[in-house]
């Protein structure tokens, strides 16, 4: 078997003395959807942000496709990568944020082309063609000239997904992508994500949408207080949780 897409071994992270991740192990298989669930403050988002090195983990090993993230192992030492090397690693990992974070000063189309032209060095015609194709995929062809502030939250999040996909990532990270949305807009974003999962994209999704986890995820990890409390097939662990903590968490969110 080839190396898994993401592999975490004993990952730790603290912020000013408070340990948020206390040795997390996780394996994400290529082409599968993994959901991270758990109460707020459990470390789900931090773990996600460590995977594309938006946060530096303090200890443990974190590998994407077998490569250490942010470091290079040579002669028995770990060398921190420079800005440029980390950037090129990051450009292959797409990320979707809770608050969309679209570039406010650019149109929808420009939001999707800027990474292609400035980071990947794609020509502008090809970038625009790709952007239009992705806008069609998320159902927003008519909005290409609009600015983010003129779109609804659900539309903005779909543009954000298109922006990440434009970089042709091998892995997509979603950090509570529907938490900032009005309830009636959640569905349109989840639909795009389901579609993406069906196309074979490897995805790690931090979410509170238990139905999405049950339907789409191959594996669910339940984090609590910086450790993975329980993990496995969503159909099993969400219906018959083994741990008391997951049981009480599910009783609150469902």
């Amino acid at each position: 078997m080839t190396s898994p897409m993401v592999e975490a071994r004993g990952v730790r992270k603290s912020y000013g003395g408070v340990e948020v991740l206390k040795g997390v192990d996780l394996t994400v298989v290529r082409g599968e959807v993994t959901c991270l669930i758990g109460p707020s403050g459990s470390g789900k988002s931090t773990l996600l942000r460590c995977i594309n090195h938006l946060e530096k983990h303090d200890a443990g090993e974190l590998r994407v496709e077998g490569h250490l993230i942010g470091y290079e192992a040579r002669d028995g030492k770990l060398y921190e990568l420079n800005d440029k090397q980390i950037c090129s690693e990051r450009s292959q990992i797409g990320m979707v944020f809770q608050r969309f974070n679209l570039f406010q000063h650019l149109t929808v189309l420009e939001n999707i082309t800027i990474g292609q032209t400035k980071v990947k060095g794609v020509g502008s015609d090809a970038a625009v063609a790709k952007a239009r194709e992705l806008l069609a995929r998320v159902g927003l062809v008519a909005k290409e000239k609009n600015y983010p502030s003129q779109l609804s939250g659900g539309q903005q999040q779909r543009v954000a997904i298109a922006r990440a996909l434009a970089m042709e990532p091998k892995l997509m990270l979603f950090d509570e992508p529907t938490s900032a949305l009005d309830p009636e807009l959640v569905g349109e974003v989840l639909d795009v994500m389901k579609d993406l999962a069906l196309s074979g994209m490897t995805m790690i999704v931090v979410t509170h949408e238990m139905n999405f986890a049950r339907e789409v995820a191959n594996t669910v990890y339940f984090l609590d207080q910086g450790v993975i409390e329980e993990s496995g097939d969503p159909k099993v662990i969400l219906s018959a949780p083994a741990s008391q903590r997951l049981k009480s968490f599910l009783s609150k969110v469902l």
Binding site: D83, C87, R90, M95, F97, L102, G115
Partner: peptide, 9 residues
Amino acid sequence: EAATSIGMT
């Protein structure tokens, strides 16, 4: 963060 996540320096 968004700019960083798409690989901008």
